[in-house]
């Protein structure tokens, strides 16, 4: 008897506590966004949207471990009954995955007009904003400025043997970067390059943040990472310096956030309002001034000195579609040689 009473008590408590969490429906104007961008920055931007428009935001964030995969897979799994209105991705390759699987629909936002063609979908399926770039970093205590690496090809050089690290090339921006090499150089040359850096004992670590930490601590001399991860250390005056690689050569990978409209989402009108907001100059300015130092893709956006002008930055001349097409073959190759 006591046990049943105890159980029913627990059950009741649980249900009551749960009461507040059940969706009450659409009496408040709302919009649901899945966000693959760092929660720290995105949350405040989304709050601003709430205050400006009065539309309530319900956001779902991703964790680093799943590297946006959780949200992307969730969107794919929810295809028959979409729950999200907007997807804010922090890169483009997975956006194209969604496009190919019919998860998103086109929306030509008035704020997308000024974005450079290279950073938006020609049919308006997605639009880029606030970009990051792949950069080389080096420890300034251990490496003199004149010896600093300037090209990703330097990772093959004997002076950096065993002293360089990169993030897992199966995931995230590193995967996109590798795929862009396959797209630009062709498979053979790209594979050769990867074999060479492997022979040069380049170390694979779990994330770009980790690359930064290891170079800061001096355990590694140089590393390949993203601008926002590098900047985290730069603004704290840690002993590292950042270099935009291959500006005389192939260029570096510039990859924007991408925002898109989910097909058959629950709140399409609010979704479009949100997309317009995210593509505004104001948001790009906020992102540029943030710790993430994201590069504005629209002209005339105010940005601090450490953020380069996108037209002055040499980018690898491949389209996002081309990068996407090489993703799988590059990942398989990487898996073969690096991940045993």
């Amino acid at each position: 008897m006591r046990v049943t009473r105890l159980l029913s008590l627990l059950l009741a408590v649980g249900v009551v506590l749960m009461g507040g969490c059940i969706d009450s429906g659409e009496d408040v104007s709302s919009v649901i966004i899945y966000v693959a961008h760092d929660q720290d920055y995105s949350e405040s931007i989304l709050k601003e949207f709430e205050e400006e428009t009065g539309i309530q935001i319900k956001a779902l964030y991703d964790t680093e471990i799943t590297k946006t995969a959780g949200l992307v897979n969730k969107l794919i799994a929810e295809k028959n009954r979409p729950r999200a209105d907007v997807f804010w991705n922090n890169e483009v390759s997975r956006t194209i995955v969604l496009k190919n699987k019919g998860i998103i629909e086109p929306y030509c936002s008035p704020n997308a007009v000024e974005v450079l063609d290279a950073y938006k979908d020609p049919e308006c399926y997605w639009t880029g904003f606030g970009a990051r770039a792949r950069v080389l970093i080096y420890n300034t205590d251990l490496v003199a400025e004149e010896d600093a690496p300037e090209s990703i090809l330097d990772l093959r050089n004997p002076e950096w043997k065993g002293k360089a690290c990169i993030a897992n090339p199966l995931f995230g921006s590193t995967a996109s970067h590798v795929a862009s090499l396959f797209a630009y150089w062709g498979d053979e040359k790209a594979m050769e390059y990867l074999n060479q850096i492997k022979d040069n004992d380049v170390r694979i670590v779990e994330s770009n943040g980790r690359v930064r930490d290891l170079v800061v601590s001096g355990e590694f001399y140089i590393g390949l990472t993203d601008t926002d991860d590098a900047n985290d250390a730069l603004i704290e005056n840690k002993p590292i310096a950042m270099v935009f690689p291959d500006q005389e050569g192939l260029g570096t990978l510039v990859f924007p956030n991408s925002v898109m409209l989910i097909k058959d989402g629950p709140n399409p009108e609010n979704a479009k309002t949100l997309i317009d907001f995210l593509l505004s100059k104001k948001v790009e300015e906020t992102l540029a001034y943030s710790k993430a130092m994201q590069i504005p893709l629209k002209p005339g956006v105010e940005h601090p000195g450490n953020v380069p002008d996108v037209d002055e930055l040499k980018c690898i001349p491949v389209t996002q579609e081309e990068i996407y097409n090489k993703l799988e073959v590059s990942q398989r190759f990487v898996q073969d040689i690096f991940i045993r």
Binding site: E64, I65, K74
Partner: peptide, 23 residues
């Protein structure tokens, strides 16, 4: 939990995993 959590709802394990990234 990671996959099925509705928007606005995060559990402690998920939060911990998220934070591991931010070092």
């Amino acid at each position: 939990t990671l996959l099925v959590s509705p928007p606005g709802i995060q559990t402690l394990p998920v939060r911990i995993y998220t934070l591991i990234h931010y070092n």
